[in-house]
């Protein structure tokens, strides 16, 4: 499957550099914040860095490396990292190994259902460049083309120590206020959606409303809407279109993508 970005889909390199998350999307108006606001933000970041709930997405390989990371051998809880069950509760989406097209859809849905600040960790070579599945017709190659990825863990398999290293790096980034890749999904939604559409077709859609959220929370950027999101508006989206057909008024259904 060719998911190498076409010309039009390539954004400025600093935004899509694997592992370069945060740099591409600097914290907004860092200078204009009041002192009070800065203290509050620093305190919040301090707490965020020390309390991380992980959603393990382990449909690929590599899940076996995680139990030792969590349990008595390495004990992630001593740095405040706990596994959680649903995307609603989680801060980190840890994706182990390859993602087939089917699972990628679920990953994207799960990612969109998480609450920001949220962080994505790609585990293993397959999330970086396809790894040993580079020639496969059914797996994607670069995870950060579809959802903004904070950090990758190279290796096939990475050992628990490597997982720990990357978690500690993430904690460091969060503490410094650098781990803001999740905002990139709102600001450049059109880019990610375009890449998703090239894999799943023009009818691709999720029941979440990324553009509405971006507007609501002030993350709306010039790249939020574009030619790909226009397809959503034209009713190409499957779930949202069905929702419209069945629920013509939006009083109940909240703000449906339109």
């Amino acid at each position: 499957m060719t998911d190498k970005p076409l010309k039009s889909h390539v954004r400025p390199p600093q935004d899509t550099m694997p592992g370069g998350a945060g740099q591409g999307c600097p914290a907004p108006d860092a200078q204009t914040r009041s002192i009070w606001r800065r203290i509050m933000d620093d305190f919040a970041d301090h707490c965020r860095a020390r309390s991380l709930f992980v959603l393990h997405y382990c449909t690929g390989c590599g899940a076996i490396e995680l139990p030792p990371t969590i349990t008595s051998r390495f004990d992630m809880e001593r740095v405040g990292i706990t596994p959680m069950v649903t995307p609603r509760q989680a801060d980190i989406l840890l994706i182990t190994g390859y993602l087939s097209l089917k699972t990628l859809k679920r990953v994207i849905l799960s990612y969109e259902q998480m609450q920001g600040p949220k962080y994505v960790l790609g585990f293993g070579s397959c999330t970086i460049n396809g790894g040993m599945y580079w020639n496969s017709y059914a797996t994607m190659k670069r995870l950060d083309q579809y959802i903004p990825t904070d950090l990758f863990i190279a290796g096939c398999m990475p050992r628990p120590e490597a997982v720990q290293q990357v978690l500690l790096k993430l904690i460091e980034d969060i503490d410094a206020g650098r781990a803001n890749a999740w905002q990139d999904y709102y600001r450049n939604y059109d880019f990610y959606l375009g890449n998703q559409q090239r894999l799943f077709g023009a009818g691709w859609n999720t029941p979440t409303d990324v553009i509405g959220e971006a507007r609501h929370y002030g993350y709306y950027g010039p790249g939020t809407e574009g030619e790909h999101t226009r397809l959503l508006a034209e009713g190409g989206g499957s779930a949202a279109r069905l929702a419209h057909a069945e629920y013509p008024s939006t009083a109940l259904t909240g703000r449906i993508k339109s």
Binding site: K105, T206, D209, G212, S238
Partner: peptide, 19 residues
């Protein structure tokens, strides 16, 4: 602030809900 979502935007283990 809160953001009210529609009832299809719901956790179903990654499953896409439809009416």
């Amino acid at each position: 602030r809160r953001y009210e979502v529609n009832q299809l935007n719901n956790y179903a283990g990654g499953h896409f809900l439809s009416p």
